[in-house]
Design a protein around this nucleic acid. Structure first.
Lengths: 195, 195
DNA sequence: GCACAAAACGAACGTTCGTGCTATTATAAA
DNA sequence: TTTATAATAGCACGAACGTTCGTTTTGTGC
């Protein structure tokens, strides 16, 4: 599954081909195929694996940060890091998959949308708790705010892949930090740079 | 070419297949193929067509707005509109193509990156002129600023395609407008909502 | 009406795709 | 050691892919 996720993150979920994956693993096509029964199942399994990896690298470690703005900041930071660290060989698995499948109805598209919705809810939930903790202005719509910082990260990834990593990611960290701070109250604790 | 762009915007530039396009146009594969000579040429021609359409729908009309912040705002607005209006059947041609080809070296990828760079330069150039006109704070880095508003639009498109158009685009308009206004000086003229 | 060029066509090529079969081999329980 | 079960391999299939070929249709200027 690790190989599948790597391949899919480079060639796209559609380009994740049973033959190529079998070659990579030095297996026969049919031997590999038997584990899934269909290409769609392979795709869904890859999504599941990628989701697990994302949870493990980004979400779980962030939960040890204190609730409120610090945890929101930590979530953003760890997401950017997981792109920089190339946890997926080809970049950001889910962003690429989203754009690839957004107009191809079916279980694969639905699952991707579901995972991304959960992620957005994670962000907006953190924002909402930041409001409850008095770290964030109550006039802000948490859902829209979550989408905004998510967009900044997606855009950074987009620019990085197209134009090279020059200073893109570092600049984006400060972009997002600025965005968080512009929404913060005086009671909000300092946001420490994680890297 | 219109049909090719439509097909590519739905199935992706890779899924733009000579056979399917021929079917759609009720032509023979070979008859269609003869016009291009290779699939890559077809892809490049599609990019060119999409670029022309984008220029026509977004850039040209914006040039009649006064230089500075108003024109920058108009560029953003028209980009959002051209997504809402589904100028490309499958959504935003270039955003999808960017993510599809970002890790597939070759002339197609290069051309996409080139077009997107030109577009970003258009935005940052407008921002720079807004600074010269005294509409925008000079402390702002125009390149980073351009990437930020581009990111917001990309993110809006991403959410729209995945979760449905509910209120996404409208909210994004105000997100971007807020972002512009937070960078504005007192001398900046009012930004009228275009739609 | 004819000649000539451009355009479209149908058939075939070699690959690769996903997907079924039927063997063969490893593994673990009896 | 035998036996049941899971994993892998081998082979073949129909379809679709990009591409090439020779032929036929279409349109234009004389």
């Amino acid at each position: 599954m690790r190989a599948a996720v790597d391949l899919a993150s480079v060639e796209g979920l559609g380009g994740l081909t049973i033959g190529r994956l079998a070659d990579e693993l030095k297996m026969s096509k049919s031997g590999l195929f038997a584990h899934f029964g269909s290409k769609e199942e392979l795709q869904l399994a890859s999504i599941e694996m990628a989701r697990q990896m994302f949870t493990e690298h980004v979400i779980i470690p962030s939960l040890s940060s204190p609730e409120g703005m610090p945890r929101l900041w930590e979530l953003c930071n760890r997401w950017l890091s997981h792109i920089e660290d190339r946890v997926f060989r080809g970049g950001c698995f889910f962003t690429a998959a989203s754009f690839e499948f957004d107009s191809r109805p079916g279980p694969v598209r639905d699952r991707i949308a579901q995972v991304m919705e959960t992620w957005l809810k994670m962000l907006s939930g953190a924002a909402r708790r930041a409001q409850k903790a008095g770290h964030m202005q109550r006039s802000i719509d948490p859902d829209q705010f979550a989408l905004e910082i998510d967009s900044l990260a997606i855009g950074a990834y987009w620019a990085r892949e197209l134009f090279g990593p020059k200073k893109t990611m570092g600049n984006t960290r400060s972009s997002i930090q600025r965005h968080l701070m512009s929404a913060a109250t005086p009671a909000c604790p300092k946001l420490r740079p994680i890297r």
